[in-house]
Amino acid sequence: MSTKYKFNDPEGIYFVSFAVVGWIDVFTRQVYRDILLESLIFCRKEKGLMIHAWLIMSNHVHLIISRKGNQKLEDIMRDMKKYSAYRILKEIKESSTESRKEWMLYLFAKAGKQNSNNTNYQFWRQDNHPIELDFHSNMFEQKLNYLHENPVEAGLVKKASNYLYSSAIDYEEGKGLLEIDVLQ
């Protein structure tokens, strides 16, 4: 069994990236970003997910996470992705204003048919690409900076803390949209 891209240490801190199938720009709409945020908040409060840094871009997400309690990180991530996919797809299907509705549903259905684990639609790519981090290493700081600088590099903002859907504001100025678990 491969150990690449696995949550090997249950007590570890991980940098995790995951994307929408086909890199579809779903999160250009606030309603879909907010559904994802609700799912992360729920997992933080009810499942023991510890979020040390986060970022939602138009078609992918970066997190630095760990866990408290007994739930496995892979189970928390699976549940979060499953629930957020269900809610976002429901919102897309029921929307009377989503101009990309038919196109997105077609692509999600096509991805779902190519995956035997799905019955209808596939929203998220199946990989999480967790990379274990040592809090006291340069790699932790590199991943944190990469995560926060992503919207700056994409030309969306000039300063990382100006991007609303990120924990950069927590690290630079104060409280953002999602409470983070600061590492000491």
Rank of each mutant, 00 (worst) to 15 (best):
D34E: 15
W23V: 05
R29G: 03
F18L: 03
T28R: 12
V31Y: 01
S39C: 15
I13Q: 01
A19C: 15
K4Q: 12
F27E: 12
V16S: 08
W23H: 11
N8E: 11
D25C: 06
L37W: 04
T3W: 04
Q30L: 12
D25V: 00
Y32D: 08
F7N: 01
F15W: 12
G12F: 06
S39R: 13
K4M: 11
S39T: 15
G12I: 03
Y5T: 01
S17A: 01
I13K: 02
F15V: 02
F15N: 01
S17I: 01
V26I: 15
E11N: 11
Y14A: 02
Y5W: 12
Y32V: 03
V20F: 09
K6Y: 01
Q30V: 14
V31H: 03
D25N: 13
Q30E: 15
T3F: 06
N8T: 08
R29M: 11
N8H: 05
R33T: 04
V21H: 08
D9Q: 00
E38F: 06
V16H: 07
A19R: 13
W23A: 10
W23R: 15
L36G: 02
V31P: 00
R33A: 05
V20A: 12
V26D: 02
S17R: 05
S17T: 14
I35Y: 01
Y5N: 14
P10K: 08
D25Y: 07
Y5P: 04
G22D: 11
E38G: 14
V31W: 01
D25G: 02
Y14F: 12
D34I: 10
D34V: 13
I13D: 00
S17D: 00
K4L: 14
V31D: 11
I41H: 10
Q30G: 05
L36T: 05
G12A: 09
L37S: 09
K4F: 11
G12L: 10
T3P: 00
R29E: 15
D25E: 13
N8F: 06
E38A: 13
I24C: 04
K4D: 05
F15C: 03
D34G: 10
F18V: 00
F27G: 07
S39D: 12
K4W: 06
F27Q: 07
R33D: 03
K4N: 09
I13V: 13
P10Y: 07
L40T: 09
V26E: 02
T28V: 12
E11P: 00
N8Y: 06
S39P: 01
I41S: 13
V26C: 11
L40M: 15
I35W: 00
V26M: 10
I13G: 00
R29N: 13
F15S: 06
L37P: 09
L37V: 10
Y5R: 10
L36W: 06
W23E: 12
S39H: 05
I35V: 14
I24M: 12
K6Q: 12
P10Q: 09
V31M: 02
F15Q: 04
V20T: 15
R33Y: 08
I13W: 02
L40D: 11
R33S: 10
K4V: 14
F15L: 08
Y5Q: 07
